[in-house]
Design a protein around this nucleic acid. Structure first.
Length: 472
RNA sequence: GGCGCUGUAGCCAAGUGGCUCAAGGCGAAGGUCUGCAAAACCUUUAUUCGUCGGUUCGAAUCCGACCGGCGCCUCCA
């Protein structure tokens, strides 16, 4: 049984999709005004792991992630860089898709853009006005928070407290300081769309209501996003969608914890701001994913070089095993001993970890336990039937590769088009082996050291010497 | 001020009433292998869960107080 911690009820609940086996899931995506940062990456990776696990469980997941391609920050950037705002959005949309791919995040089924849904957005705003939940003032449209009874139910706030603690700018046009923009009147030079209220652009919250409804229906299963979106963004989405449709908006709300740097919030002003793009130059996608997966998605995560370095190191254990498996599978020893191994135990452990509110740290522990047990089995038994190796690989393919994305068998394969390097290296290995036989250790060590300096590591083992190339 | 999260070994981090008097990763120590290394693999590494009380047959896990850290309430994943 899969249970999920639901922000709105503050409880773990059994997951029951509306239309088995269909699961409709919406995740708040980026505003495409810059390269996304490592904190965004955490949300994207953890929602990817959740999505992959749902698929592993046999659900048919429709995964939608919006791209906010019209917004104040984009306009600001376009002015700074003296570009068209759509050019800014296009550039960073492209960059977003590239980085997502590098992080081994599965593509969403749909990446809806705000600018491509103006009809839906305008219709939704009109509906809210018609039903009395919104009002227009001189080209702007605001949502009237006082008309929606349950305002604050997601974030646990109430209107009175919000007003008394108001650090909100006073806007003469608003009836209530908490009212928020649905439609913003365009200023001179800003991008605009025609609407019944004049030229303007949508407010931030309305696009998610309009696009989630357009692609997933009025009520859908899972809505996820960063912790900081609970208020006001998601609160406002609920207010908009439920007021317009008269139906429950979302069944399960999932929120990701924040990523801090040295226990401080990441921010440009503190100078501790890192884009995913920068981090990917230093560490592998698998290491980033493992580092994130080793912390529960909802808790805070303190990000550091050491964290990623230790993940990278931990990964070597899995990569070595993967390499070993491929080697043995290639040998195809069909006459070896069949080894009893309790694959089911690990499968059950993995599933019960992930079933418990996507406890990926526990799931990672299962993978490492599994690797240790397998290594032990191999160490105890020289002549194992290939069936064992195939089963091991299959398990890892489903879990570490398929769900967590912390392992990539393709990486442990030797580069296929590099036979010259391979032949030359093997030649040197042969020379070195001969030197060793003659006890000419000065020469054999020289060969080893020289190769190391060009990035080829020799490994003496029982069945001779193998090498590996250090990849950048 | 309101709402919420959090304090577990040198570091990161699961576990939220008995099966776990505490997973996993990094680090450290020992071992196997080796001409020596490296790598790999194996083993070991918290009688204890911020502090003090309480509830209970039984608590890291529930309750209370206290001491720390953090987030949201304003654009932000």
């Amino acid at each position: 049984m899969l249970s999920i911690y639901n922000t709105i009820t503050r409880k773990k609940e059994e997951f029951k999709p509306i239309n088995l086996p269909q699961v409709n899931m919406y995740v708040c995506g980026p505003t495409v005004y810059d390269y996304f940062h490592i904190g965004n990456a955490r949300s994207f990776i953890m929602s990817d792991i959740i999505r992959r696990y749902l698929e592993y469980k046999g659900f048919n997941v429709k995964f939608v992630m919006n791209l906010t391609d019209v917004d104040d920050k984009i306009i600001k950037k376009s002015i700074e860089e003296n570009k068209d705002s759509s050019a800014v959005a296009d550039h960073f949309t492209k960059a977003f898709l590239e980085d997502i791919q590098k992080l081994k995040i599965k593509k969403a089924d749909i990446y809806p853009k705000a600018t491509a849904h103006m009809h839906e957005i305008i219709d939704l705003i009109q509906k809210l006005i018609d039903k009395g939940f919104a009002y227009s003032v001189d080209g702007n449209v605001f949502y009237d928070v006082s008309k929606f009874d349950n305002y604050g139910k997601l974030s646990g706030k109430n209107i009175e407290e919000l007003i008394s603690g108001a650090r909100i700018e006073i806007n003469e046009e608003k009836k209530n300081p908490l009212d928020f923009s649905l439609w913003k009147k365009a200023k001179e030079g800003e991008p605009y769309w025609e609407s019944p209220w004049g030229k303007g652009r949508p407010g931030w919250h309305i696009e998610c209501s309009a696009m989630s409804c357009a692609h997933l229906g009025e009520t859908f299963d899972i809505h996820a996003g960063g912790n900081d979106l609970i208020f006001p963004h998601h609160e406002n989405e609920i207010a908009q969608s439920e007021a317009a449709n008269g139906k429950k908006f979302v069944n399960y709300w999932i929120h990701f914890g924040f990523l801090n740097i040295n226990n401080e919030k990441m921010s440009k002003s503190l100078g501790n701001f890192f884009t995913a793009r920068e981090i990917l130059k230093l560490f592998s996608a698998e290491a980033i994913r493992l580092a994130f997966a080793q912390t529960h998605y909802a808790g805070p995560l303190n990000f550091s070089d050491e964290l990623l370095a230790s993940a990278e190191k931990g990964l070597e254990k899995l990569n070595n095993l993967a390499e070993k498996l491929d080697k043995e599978i290639k040998k195809n020893n069909t006459s070896g001993n069949v080894r009893a191994f309790d694959f089911n135990k690990f499968k059950n452990d993995f599933e019960s970890a992930m079933d418990d509110d996507f406890n990926s740290p526990q799931a990672c522990a299962v993978i490492f336990d599994f690797a240790r047990e397998v290594n032990r089995a191999i160490a105890e038994n020289e002549n194992l039937n290939v069936k064992f190796y195939l089963d091991v690989k299959e398990f890892l393919e489903k879990t570490a590769v398929g769900v967590l994305g912390i392992l990539d068998f393709a990486k442990s394969q030797p580069p296929p088009d590099d036979s010259l390097t391979e032949d030359l290296t093997n030649l040197l290995i042969k020379l070195r082996t001969d030197a060793k036989k003659e006890k000419n250790f000065a020469l054999s060590d020289k060969i080893r050291d020289e190769l190391k300096s060009i990035g080829i590591i020799l490994q003496d083992g029982k069945d001779g010497t193998t090498f590996k190339v250090i990849k950048k």
